[in-house]
Design a protein around this nucleic acid. Structure first.
Lengths: 256, 256
DNA sequence: ACAATAGTGTCTCTTAGACAGTATCTG
DNA sequence: CAGATACTGTCTAAGAGACACTATTGT
């Protein structure tokens, strides 16, 4: 084999990919007020944003939002750009989680797709109808999307993987905060966690987060300017202490 | 914009990537016997395998092993293939962890690189010199590689990210076992963990792993066919109980 | 008074963390 | 017996987990 250098090297000599899309799994948690005599916690549901395809291939089917990467940007920038184009939101938590490259996954050719998930607060997504001009977008419960729906390409697999990753990170990092306002009650936090990870049950959740030293540092109590503890009775008669994530994340360990 | 279909669609209309390499960060832990009057635990060190480049670009520099993906394989398969070609090993733990796509990262053009890490047992890597025919390969301590060495492309960044990921997973999954024989003592396990995560200190490590209910299930005692506890005195005068990973991984949580 | 959420009291058993001490075997 | 590893004893403070109980307030 002859030695190569900048003069002799040419990518044209090799078969190259036909494109590098970024696909984004955009999760949000919707709140719906329950019919109740008194104030109560809303019904929450984990939803995913899908786009109805207009062109070949899989025209008419629901798919994850996304688009092709350009030479002048990283795939992370592609995903940020598409996220803003499709939903109008920026400055939200977005994370890369996997690559999809199985031969034949896209009838258009050799497409290596980079998958991200984004966690968007319900309010931030409010202006959804405004942002999408041409394409039809819809919020579907994750259960529904993975249950009955047929998605374009391998987007069902991507969605499954994204959900698994978010569930995993939900318990191990403070990403639950992405679905909550900056200040929240422990009741809300517990509810959000359980919306994403239904089998997380913790009888003494509030007490544990409030009292145990080993967890202190994850959350901090919100105080008013006067230094008094700040409470909210948005969801209950009895006012509840407001908290925020402190930013500290203790290191978890199998062996701790 | 006109509607597209399988007749009109052509990837040639768009600028496409010039290649999709897979790069593999191959970690191993070497053991070196210490000079000692009696049996003792070896000195262990985390090492990474690098290849000396022979061709443009960055000829003569050390780089991560890897190679270009083909149209007929997934990038995971690419990585597996390259791993075997470079080191001769297969059936080892290999995991995808990130994509590198910054414009300009490769002088050959628009290259979107997929980075994997592999954890290889020292013995499995023994036949290293045999496997590499043309290229020069070397094992470097990670400290050294990240300290003084100048690596090709953005491989320094990739190595840093790989190390961070492995450290993270070291404490949260049973991957420490990849560096150990199937049956090991708790002293060895502790040593391997500390080799990767030096600031993991646990005074009562052995007792905790043996006795605490909450951790039981991660490890299990090895027994002989007769049902007696199996011990080893490979590294100590006093024989130590042998363990293996059971496969169970408890779910860790900030909120548990 | 009731509904719905936000807590507190109380109990037992387990674990953390520190530090000293014992066990085993070889050269 | 020195050296190296593998444990065990013992103590206190903290936390887990279960379940019953009290607190708050709009309707």
């Amino acid at each position: 084999m002859a030695e190569e250098n900048e003069k002799t090297y040419s990518a044209a000599k090799y078969r190259t990919p036909d494109g590098a899309p970024a696909d984004i799994v955009i999760f949000t948690i919707t709140s719906e007020q329950r019919p109740s005599m008194t104030k109560s916690l809303p019904k929450r549901e984990l939803k995913v944003l899908l786009i109805k395809r207009k062109v070949w291939p899989h025209a008419g089917m629901w798919a994850l939002p996304g688009g092709f990467s350009r030479e002048t940007e990283s795939v992370y920038e592609t995903a940020r750009r598409e996220l803003q184009e499709e939903t109008g939101v920026k400055d939200v938590h977005m994370e890369y989680f996997n690559v999809y490259s199985r031969p034949g996954r896209d009838p258009r050719g050799w497409m290596i797709s980079h998958a991200f998930f984004a966690l968007v607060n319900e309010e931030a997504l409010g202006k959804l109808e405004a942002a999408d001009d041409a394409e039809e977008a819809g919020l579907f419960s994750v259960e529904e999307a993975l249950g009955g729906m047929e998605l374009a390409f391998d987007h069902r697999e991507i969605l499954q993987d994204a959900l698994a990753r978010v569930k995993e990170k939900m318990l191990v990092t403070p990403i639950a905060g992405e679905f909550l306002p900056g200040e929240f009650t422990l009741g809300e936090l517990y509810q959000v966690i359980r919306t994403v990870v239904p089998d997380f049950e913790e009888a003494n959740f509030i007490r544990k987060m409030k009292q145990t030293q080993s967890r202190s540092g994850v959350l901090e109590e919100v105080r008013t300017e006067q230094g008094a503890l700040k409470k909210s009775n948005r969801y209950s008669q009895r006012a509840a202490q407001l908290y925020r994530f402190s930013g500290d994340v203790p290191r978890l360990s199998l062996y701790s």
